[in-house]
Each structure stands twice: as structure tokens, then as C-alpha cells.
Write a protein that binds this DNA or RNA. Structure first.
Lengths: 226, 226
DNA sequence: TCAGGTTCTCAGCGGGTTCACAGCGACCCC
DNA sequence: GGGGTCGCTGTGAACCCGCTGAGAACCTGA
């Protein structure tokens, strides 16, 4: 999909304040976008899910369902449309939360229309490749959407099994993960695979990512170093 | 389970000041949560135990039983529901205590409702996988999830048996633990192991954690010093 | 069909871990 | 103070766990 096909870019605005919603719609239409508006969380979510928009402008305070929950639901359903969040709050927590939930950018009310336009264009340029947050630990990054791993910025080639194993370890980096658990979730057949396979694959990962990327906790399992 | 499935998230508020309790309930209901309220420690504990809530907002000063005791009891009973504690105090110690006992986050009165909401959402996002609390006594900390032990902040390497033994002692720090009991629970075979093994391992722990980390109660067993 | 990559088993090695043993020291009671 | 009990610790041997290289089976795309 080419999102910036001129004059055909479709936007969804989810905003309950009718005055603001109308102003946004007018302004954006004047800029050549096709704009749909929804006024509450649930119907906005529904529309964002199936509307095939190139980007969504999303207020946080919404009737029925907060903007946070809308993005989070979308991302959980693997919908990666770019989302620009709007909020009257400006606390640290709120911003962090919005981005954590999977929003791509964040704007605090009141904002100038020009700024909104600039950010929106930046998002559209980046394209619909908005993606699951990259898992990071130390100098190792794993992009779940691209299934790509980098070490100190340099790409590292991993086999599917290696990548799945690393992903599981990164997603549970706050605790020790046992070998049987890994067999369950990474091999999905704890029965007929030798636990030694886990050791072998940890060995492969260490060879590619550095000796101390994965720590052995003898008698318990493995953890990624923090 | 998806805890934030909009409109179905169930919260329990344990707060004895009726005005505050009512305000919280109203605010949270307006945000789409299902909210139950209890006004004292014991009934709150009972409800938290069996109510199947997605999170608990818990005051510290409560009639009948302190908030500290409520979390501690819940965690001791392996109930891992996320707990957000509220307190009028703001001393460093109180905060540390609350988190030590197994609370997941901490808010000092007076707080803004927006902040409470943000923290609560953060907790719900983390999900019911709230981490097991770190066991602490003196300058010794044991993180059961990471299987990691620190003394005065410095990591200490323990073998699996050593760690299991220390964990059992810490989990029963309020009483003397007999050697046979330790053989039962740490060695899970009280029959064919010499009770002297316990003495040996206590010796190992003392060597690594300090001579007086574990106190001998002659004729009865061992306790960790408090 | 062949080449290259991936998955996983196998077996051996090395070192940490577990625990019995035995001698010694500490404590308690008479 | 003396004897007995209980707990502590150094030594050492068997054991277990995790690591690794080699290689077989398998899959996949050219």
C-alpha cells in the first residue's frame, strides 16, 4: 500500500468535542485529505479496525472507551495504522503511557493546527509500518514485526528458532525462564524434545550476540542480562 | 485473559474514609471500571482473596488490619492481583515497606485522580503477572523471580540448594524452622538425607551472607535475624 | 537432484554442587 | 568442672548440570 498517493490519503479523526472535531475535519479536508470523524471510543475503534485508513487522530478522553484502550486494542489485533494521540493532559505518565500503548506520536492540547499537520505528514511519510515496540536489552534490539535482530545497530542473522527463543527470553526478561517452559512455548512440544536442545540454541545465540547476552541460572534456567 | 477488555475491568477499593472511597468509586466507574468498595482490612482481604479482581486500590490505614498486612497476607497465599497502595504518610520507609510487602505501586495522599488512573492503567497493562515481591531481611534481598540474591546491594552467587534453603527461611522469617522441616521442604526427602546436610548448608550461607545472617536456636532449628 | 541452511540428537568434557564423614568446639545440666 | 549432646566445618568423592563439537535427518529453494 502506498499511503501518500496524493489526494487520496484517508484519515480518521476520533474526537468527542464536536467543535474541535469539526475544525479538524475542515482543516484537513482543505489540505486535501479525505476525513471521517467518529465521536466515541467504541465506534472509533470499529472504524479504525476495518476502515483501511492511512492514519488516525485520536483523542484520549472519549466516551465509552479511552483513547489508550483504542490504540492498545488495535495493536493487540495487529492493526498497525499510524496513530497520533491528542490529550489535554501533559503529565509525564500520560505521555509515556500513550506511547507505551502503541501510539506513534503525541500532541498536547492546545496545539496549533500547523504542528498537527506537520506531525501527521511525518507519520504518513513513515507509513503504515508503525509497529510493535522493539524489544531492547543492552545493545540488542529485536523488532517483532520485522523479525529482525540488531546488535549495537548491526543486523544479526538468526534462524527462526533462534529468533523465537530470543523473543521469548526478551519478553520475560524480568525473571528466570526454565528449560521446560521454553520447550513449551518456543518448541510447543515439551514432550519429545530433549531439553539439551535449549542449551544448544542458547549456545548459538551466545555465539552471535555475545557470550554474556544470556545468563545461565544453574538449576533454574536462563535470563537475558539487563 | 485480557484485563483491559473495555468496560469489564473489575476493581476493588479498600478505603475507610467514606468521602474518599465514594469519590474514587464514582471517578473509576465513570472511566468504565466495575468498582467494589470495602471499608476495613479484614473484609477487604476476604474480598480481594476470592473476588477475582483485576486490581486492588488499598489504603494503608484501615480498621481491623493494616493495608500492609492485607498485601502481605495476599502474597503469602499466592494471590498476585496487582495492588496500588495509598497512604497519608510520605516517609521513605513507608514506601519501601509497602513495596517490600508485595504492593506493585504506591501513591501518597493527596494525589490527583488523573495520576491514580494512569498508575492503575500501568498496573493493569502489566497484568496479573505482578512480580513476586522481593524477600528482604536486613541488608539481604532475595528475588524469587530472578533467583538472585544481594547483600548490601552486591550480588551473591548461591547454588540452587543454598538459594532454596535461604528462600524457605525468609518465607518463614517470623518463626524458628526445624531441621526436619527443612529437609522436608528444601530437600523434599527427609528420609535418606543426613540432617547434618542442613548444618552444612547453613554454614555455606553464613559464609556468603555474614556470620549472623542466620541464627541457631539450639535444639529447635534456625531463624533469619530480623 | 543438489546445495545450503536449519533442527536436533548424541556423547564427552569440565567444573560446580551435593553430601557423607569425622574431628572438634560450644553449650547445657548436673 | 566434667560429661554428654548438639552444632560447626574441612576434606574429599561421587554426581549432576550445562556446554560444545560432530554429525545425521530434514526442509527448502535453485
Amino acid at each position: 500500500m502506498v499511503p501518500c498517493d496524493a489526494g487520496r490519503v484517508r484519515l480518521l479523526v476520533i474526537e468527542d468535542e464536536t467543535r474541535l472535531a469539526l475544525a479538524l475535519q475542515r482543516g484537513l479536508v482543505a489540505e486535501g485529505f479525505v476525513v471521517d470523524v467518529r465521536h466515541d471510543g467504541p465506534s472509533g475503534l470499529q472504524e479504525a479496525r476495518f476502515g483501511g485508513y492511512d492514519a488516525v487522530v485520536l483523542d484520549i478522553m472519549l466516551p465509552g472507551m479511552s483513547g489508550y484502550d483504542v490504540v492498545r486494542t488495535l495493536r493487540a489485533e495487529q492493526v498497525w495504522v499510524p496513530v497520533l494521540m491528542l490529550s489535554a493532559k501533559d503529565g509525564e505518565y500520560d505521555q509515556a503511557d500513550g506511547l507505551d500503548y502503541g501510539a506513534d506520536d503525541y500532541l498536547t492540547k492546545p496545539f496549533s493546527f500547523v504542528v498537527l499537520l506537520a506531525r501527521l505528514r511525518a507519520l504518513l511519510r513513515r507509513g503504515a509500518t508503525a509497529r510493535e515496540p522493539v524489544l531492547t536489552v543492552g545493545d540488542i534490539e529485536l523488532d517483532p514485526a520485522l523479525r529482525e535482530v540488531r546488535r549495537a545497530g548491526e543486523p544479526v542473522a538468526l534462524s527462526p528458532r533462534e529468533l523465537t527463543l530470543l523473543e521469548y527470553l526478551l519478553r520475560h526478561r524480568d525473571r528466570v525462564v526454565g528449560k521446560v517452559e521454553l520447550l513449551d512455548h518456543v518448541w510447543d512440544s515439551a514432550q519429545d524434545v530433549d531439553p539439551n536442545a535449549v542449551e544448544v540454541y542458547v549456545g548459538y545465540l551466545r555465539r552471535k550476540l555475545g557470550r554474556d547476552a544470556i545468563r545461565t541460572v544453574r538449576g533454574a534456567g536462563y535470563t537475558v542480562r539487563r
